[in-house]
């Protein structure tokens, strides 16, 4: 563990990424205390420029809402969307991929056909369709992102399991009469952890980007103040008021960057041999 931390800390990018993430996390946790008023509240006159009025560090938007408050409250939402959608896609992708890889044969064939099915539909287009059909809401956005992002997880797991299956310790376990479930859960899964962790951090980043893109297409949840919503709503006044979409855009960029850097750092630290993945 210590060794891992040392290796991780040795990667400059990873440390920067971790710091950025910590800031975002703090922002998400303390937003209700920093900005107790609802981020939707019309608090000042519209189009207040940033750095000019106390309490309105990042200015106000087209309706006079505090951009900084929206940014703080949005941190929570964006992280939530990233995390939950990634967890859901792991929950789908890992068992599917593991079974396909372990059992092989017709099980593999069917499961891979299902995976292929989701992979041949263009990802973003499919997400757009899903959100439109389910009608935009936090749940439908998370569901859509999760549904389109699990196939790579399944493929990764299948590959890992295939590689592990022929190793001695698995064969030994099989010979000692352990059940398939036990072998998969006890012997195989722990060994696939590191690539999965690396992939997850990248997936969180992609999920945050996807949410903002959905918002741009007019498919955001109107009840939640997310960064994607803020960029989407501010983009039409970009010529008059750059700050409305700039700050949330920057927040997305930095957070996505953070998760990518962390992912790379984890990759190097957890398993130098696996560096080629990512």
């Amino acid at each position: 563990m210590l060794d891992f931390l040392k290796r991780f800390a040795g990667n400059r990018g990873a440390v920067i990424g971790a710091l950025l993430l910590v800031v975002t996390l703090l922002l998400a946790i303390f937003s209700p205390m920093l900005y107790p008023q609802s981020p939707w509240a019309i608090a000042q006159r519209p189009f207040l420029e940033p750095f000019t009025t106390e309490g309105y560090l990042m200015g106000t938007d087209t309706l006079g809402r505090n951009v900084a408050s929206g940014l703080a409250h949005g941190a929570y939402i964006s992280l939530l969307i990233g995390l939950i959608s990634t967890l859901v896609s792991l929950a789908i992708g890992i068992p599917l991929g593991a079974c396909a890889g372990y059992f092989g044969g017709w099980v593999d064939d069917i499961l891979m056909r299902v995976t292929e099915f989701f992979q041949v539909i263009p990802t973003f287009a499919f997400a757009v369709v899903l959100v439109a059909i389910l009608q935009p809401s936090l749940t439908s956005i998370i569901t859509a992102i999760a549904l389109v992002s699990w196939p790579p997880v399944a493929r990764l797991l299948r590959g890992e399991v295939l590689a592990l299956k022929s190793r001695e310790f698995i064969e030994a376990a099989q010979l000692s009469g352990q059940s398939s479930t036990t072998i998969i859960l006890r012997q195989i899964m722990p060994n696939t952890l590191s690539p999965v962790v690396v992939m997850s951090s990248m997936m969180i980043a992609t999920a945050i980007l996807t949410e903002s893109a959905l918002s741009f297409m007019g498919l955001g949840d109107p009840e939640i103040m997310s960064w994607g919503y803020m960029v989407g709503a501010g983009r039409t006044v970009i010529r008059q008021a750059w700050w409305i979409s700039f700050f949330p855009g920057l927040a997305i960029l930095l957070t996505v960057l953070a998760f990518n850097l962390i992912g790379e750092g984890l990759n190097d630290a957890l398993n130098p041999r696996l560096r080629k993945r990512g």
Partner: peptide, 21 residues
């Protein structure tokens, strides 16, 4: 719709926005 939601919230009427196409 957001302005209306804030207006009504001020007098104590809560609105639940339903997004749709």
């Amino acid at each position: 719709a957001e302005v209306v939601r804030q207006n009504l919230a001020q007098v104590g009427i809560t609105l639940q926005t339903e997004a749709t196409d």
